[in-house]
């Protein structure tokens, strides 16, 4: 298992066209998207909204099979033969199952009976809420359950699609820290999609910037800040500023979007 998780993830998506009947139909979403992710790397993916980030994750997760290309590990294992954890933009919990059963449901019988679900939920301070239905939990707690579910299967690849969007800052930051703790105690390859550059710098070993659709990688940045990091640390902000200055024209559209997001946050 240890040897397996250190294999590189090789992403080669040659072409993905949105189906003609869908909104934006016939548009090319992804073209010649190619990158490698070393095993156990925390890789953030930043790009403007609508650039096909979610589509890319769905292709990897096997939800979207209408794409040309190949995603596999460097030992040749295709993705549909490996456990993949996926945390969506909304928690997507089953409302008719308790917190405990929401995690157990994705496990095999043997794993479920070994108490793995309970252990990981305890670790996320949900030990008191094991038998509660998700509707009675706050948004932040629901996301913790979704995070526990994604980690419970001991994924070889963990996909996260803007999972902490629409949470207020303290709750979001707590979840970000929990994610890092889980990832450090259960190392796995992570692809974290976001459009929040600060979040990407706080979390990632590396940030890939995608262009507007059809999306390609336009910039590949290593985040060399030492861990553990603090999201309030001026170093994070300094890293963000220097990144925007260095690649002003390249990230122009993105920086604009960031500014818009921020002023929208302020107004709210």
């Amino acid at each position: 298992m240890d040897a397996m998780t250190t294999e590189n993830l090789q992403v080669r998506i040659d072409r993905k066209v949105y189906p003609a009947e869908a909104p934006g139909g016939g548009r090319v979403a992804i073209a010649d998207l190619a990158f490698d992710v070393p095993g156990r790397q925390f890789c953030c993916i930043v790009g403007p909204s609508g650039c096909g980030k979610t589509t890319m994750l769905n292709i990897m997760a096997g939800l979207d099979k209408e794409a040309e290309g190949r995603v596999e590990f460097s030992d040749g294992t295709p993705l549909d033969a490996t456990p993949i954890g996926y945390m969506f933009q909304t928690p997507r919990l089953l409302p008719w199952l308790s917190v405990r059963d929401n995690v157990r449901i994705v496990l095999g019988d043997e794993e479920a009976n070994s108490g793995r679900a309970e252990r990981i939920l305890e670790e996320m301070q949900l030990g008191d809420s094991l038998d509660v239905f998700p509707n009675r939990l706050s948004g932040g707690m629901q996301r913790r359950v979704a995070l526990a579910r994604a980690f419970a299967i001991e994924p070889r690849l963990l996909l996260l699609d803007e999972p902490f969007v629409s949470l207020d800052a303290p709750v979001g930051n707590r979840l970000r820290s929990m994610l890092l703790e889980l990832w450090q105690s259960r190392p796995t390859t992570v692809l974290f999609v976001t459009h929040d550059l600060r979040e990407a710098i706080f979390l990632g070993d590396r940030i890939l910037f995608l262009s507007r659709g059809p999306s390609r990688v336009i910039l590949d940045v290593t985040v060399d800040l030492p861990r553990p990091r603090n999201i309030e640390d001026p170093k994070v902000e300094a890293f963000r500023k220097s990144l925007l200055e260095q690649h002003n024209s390249l990230l122009h559209g993105l920086a604009e979007e960031q500014a818009r997001d921020r002023s929208a946050d302020d107004a709210a």
Partner: peptide, 24 residues
Amino acid sequence: RELLQVAQVFHVDRQRRFFKFFLP
């Protein structure tokens, strides 16, 4: 469909997919 996608991603078997994700 979003809940059914969860079952698909996490490789939940068909029986559980029907009785725990779909039928409820």
